[in-house]
Amino acid sequence: MKLKVISGICLLLAAFLYSCQSEDELEFSRYYSAGNVIYQNKCQNCHGKNGEGLSALIPPLTDSVYLKAHKDSLSCYVKYGLKGKIALANKTFEGEMPANDLAPIEIAEVLTFVTNSFGNKMGTITSQHVGDDLQKCK
């Protein structure tokens, strides 16, 4: 009897954990595929189909180290654009990225796509995270 209860609880717990995990995965897929569409419409012309950028004119999105180090600023870059010198992928860039009038959820989606494509693997960047980061834009 006791064994049955315990195994039942274990089973429930396992099912709970499993559903939790797949919920996260579902969220990731939703963000990622919506982000892919936004990327094609808003980013791809400049940054390229494979995030390769363009020579020393437009930075690539393949520098995982840079993206990780600037994770909390990425939302601001997307929303308000980026100007001035930046160094990544062994090059310096000094063009200007235009601002993008996107909602926090859209920024979260496109960032989830970018930071999990082109050799990057940073997991879901949630709408909540983007909202918090946008408060701190300089």
Binding site: Q44, N45, C46, G48, L54, S55, L57, I58, E96, P98
Partner: peptide
């Protein structure tokens, strides 16, 4: 040079 839309993709292809 300051073209925000199609020029980067054009010149990526022209390269």
């Amino acid at each position: 040079t300051t073209c925000p839309s199609i020029c980067p993709v054009m010149h990526r292809n022209m390269l």
